[in-house]
Design a protein around this nucleic acid. Structure first.
Lengths: 189, 189
DNA sequence: CTATAATACTAATTAGATTAGGAAAATGGC
DNA sequence: GCCATTTTCCTAATCTAATTAGTATTATAG
């Protein structure tokens, strides 16, 4: 049997592909092995279990998100940076449904590795908030507001949960307006 | 074999209990049957499959949410009603992690029954927004903003995704402030 | 050119969902 | 109260997917 010449990152990447095309539940060791042209037990050379594979997918998603968000906010500052970063987040979620689903579902502060992955992301976000004339304490809360909105809105869109035909893109932009105006109003008090 | 005297709603209720105590993944036909004191094949007298059971759990969650939100906003109007309703949503999510998870995960506008369940909920929300001096078109968008935030924030809290010790309750209240101030600012334009 | 490690395989086990077929309990009509 | 029907439950069997065990083959280091 010729070796397939795989490595862990290739396995994760293929799992990401499967997740994005068929949904996270379509990622099984069986389907993944088949997609890679090997037998499912062989996957244990790369991952410890199906659960671990999904966790890797979660980390993979957060790494990619960080990269996109970082890139999107480069060279921009203030509320524009916040907007650009939010759009990058949303765009990634829309274009990578399966991986995003994994990122959300296993989005826990359980261990060091998961924290390390999101730490970089937080650096970016904190830096943006520093340029926003917002107190450190409020920033802590408002970042949570943004996280909540971005993750929830993206999840809803990915689930086709908005039943009516009103433009989703417009809803997103208007939501950003509301959030930003709200933050500004808060600081003026 | 003495009959257990079950019916569909008792089965769903027990599934909800299992989901809330051990997480949605802890709900298997095996564990559910055991909790009910019957054998797993007997469950097919009440539900067509595991997938259908989870769907029922989703509907169960939305029905309960509607009831809570309706109750919370009774006798209140304007932005206070929005606040109370949001708090009721968040509270339910916090106190019913497993069911809420099911409600989110299967939150699609797939079929008539799912739409019927959430239709009542939307009536309540639309009525509140009518008292808010917000145009019908904007209301459509802002409801999505609120849904996004509420679902996302609740999910994050349930996943312990907020790693630092800053008060989550305060974050929630401040988020409502921001959202409401933002909406007001929007109307003043 | 060999020793070791890495990669892949087949075969077997396990858990859980589901199906098939049958027995016992409840129910409705008389 | 009694029978026919339906409902509820059971055991046995099947199926799919994860996982484990054990082995062969390919790569790689020296």
């Amino acid at each position: 049997m010729a070796k397939a010449g795989l490595d862990k990152s290739a396995v994760i990447a293929k799992a990401a592909e499967l997740a994005n095309s068929g949904g996270l539940d379509a990622v099984t060791l069986k389907s993944l092995a088949e997609a890679l042209g090997i037998q499912s037990p062989s996957l244990y050379n790369y991952v410890g279990s199906l659960a671990e594979l999904k966790r890797e997918l979660m980390l993979y998603g957060w790494r990619q998100l960080e990269e996109r968000m970082l890139r999107a906010s480069a060279g921009v500052s203030g509320y524009d940076a916040l907007r650009e970063m939010s759009r990058a987040f949303y765009k990634y979620a829309r274009e990578n449904k399966g991986v995003f689903d994994a990122a959300l579902r296993y989005n826990k502060f359980a261990d060091g590795e998961a924290m390390a992955v999101t730490a970089g992301l937080f650096d970016v976000v904190y830096r943006i908030f520093e340029g926003l004339n917002i107190s450190r304490e409020n920033a802590e809360h408002l970042i949570r507001t943004m996280r909540g909105f971005l993750e929830g809105f993206s999840l809803l869109v990915n689930n086709d949960a908005f039943g009516n035909p009103v433009s989703v893109e417009k809803s997103f932009e208007l939501s950003l307006d509301v959030l930003i105006e709200g933050m500004k109003a808060l600081e003026e008090k």
